[in-house]
Write a protein that binds this DNA or RNA. Structure first.
Length: 299
DNA sequence: TGGTCTCATCTGGTCTTCAC
DNA sequence: GTGAAGACCAGATGAGACCA
């Protein structure tokens, strides 16, 4: 589920995040299921995905947990990470059709752009907020009075002399410099004291067409790593992946974690081998199907 | 079974960047 | 120009894997 709920996103403005922390959250949304759970997050994969150092991974994980943005559970060689509040299970298909699900998609080309990594945290949050506004407006030009734009994002002085904090907690001059950067991703113009901001079409395109397929492909990868299945049979692999996609709705409605089925499958395959070190570690789609149906209570 | 190697994780320090 | 914070590097340590 490559998306982040709008209220979760809005809460990020208060958390004083670093650039890497924002990228960490976005990377998590690429791995998470509909409950905001990312199982089997491995430091090496995240380092490669985000192009960060190993230390940066641990710094981000620790810091985001301390800020209450994620909940981390240590696995054997990886982590199960929950992006707090990013649970989409309460929404129905009808909610999506009627547009009652407020969220930001994170599978757009914008987030994979080479310049994205170089941006400052406040710049990333500004872009994401404007992206959301543009999407909500069906990519029509966003119009906002210059003074309102500054008041919304930058710190300003109120009439009584007190400081009013903007969303980005920066001064107006800094915000002005950010406008140059905004032009990377948006057409930005000013007319009659109004900013006209439109997302460049090429950055709104999806990188991954099927979110569900990507979610379950990742799950398969984690299952093989955790169960030490080093060279899985490709046919069995594809069959199990297809099973997971076929049973997606039932899995969605239940609290069954498909990852729990893989060790059970290995246990049955090796029922006569007492020493797990001597187990034959392979996938068997027919057996997986049987166990999955049992777990789901399907006759 | 014990020695060796590799991997995962953490700590402390330094360098770099950037807002003011 | 400066101070603060982010990002990264080097090294230490412990756990587990591997092999003779």
């Amino acid at each position: 589920m490559q998306r982040i709920k709008l209220d979760v996103f809005h809460s990020l403005f208060e958390k004083e995040l670093t650039g890497n922390e924002i990228d960490f959250i976005i990377a998590l949304t690429h791995l998470q299921n509909g409950r905001g759970e990312a199982f089997g997050v491995h430091y090496k994969e995240m380092c490669e995905k985000m192009d960060i150092s190993v230390q940066a991974f641990y710094d981000c994980k620790k810091s985001l947990a301390q800020k209450g943005i994620i909940q981390v559970t240590k696995g054997q060689k990886d982590y199960d990470i929950v992006l707090c509040g990013n649970d989409f299970t309460s929404y129905t298909d009808r909610d999506y059709k009627t547009g009652n699900v407020p969220y930001i998609r994170t599978n757009q080309k914008l987030f994979y752009d080479v310049n994205w990594k170089k941006l400052k945290p406040a710049q990333k949050l500004l872009i994401m907020d404007l992206l959301n506004i543009n999407e909500a407006g069906k990519f029509r030009t966003h119009r906002i009075k210059r003074e309102n734009f500054i008041k919304k994002y930058a710190n300003t002085v109120a009439e009584d002399g007190s400081m009013e904090r903007g969303l980005l907690n920066i001064n107006a001059r800094t915000l002005q410099t950010y406008l140059k950067m905004l032009k990377l991703y948006f057409y930005v113009g000013i007319k009659d004291g109004m900013y006209l901001i439109t997302l460049r079409k090429q950055f709104s395109e999806k990188v991954v067409q099927s979110e569900h397929k990507q979610t379950y492909e990742y799950l398969m990868k984690v299952a093989c790593r955790r169960n030490k299945i080093k060279q899985p049979d490709q046919k069995e692999y594809k069959d199990i992946l297809q099973l997971l996609l076929n049973y997606r709705k039932r899995l969605w409605e239940s609290f069954i974690n498909p990852l729990d089925i893989f060790p059970k499958m290995l246990l049955i395959i090796n029922d006569r081998v007492l020493n797990p070190k001597k187990w034959i570690r392979r996938l068997k789609a027919s057996l997986f199907h049987k166990l999955l149906r049992e777990e789901l209570g399907v006759a």
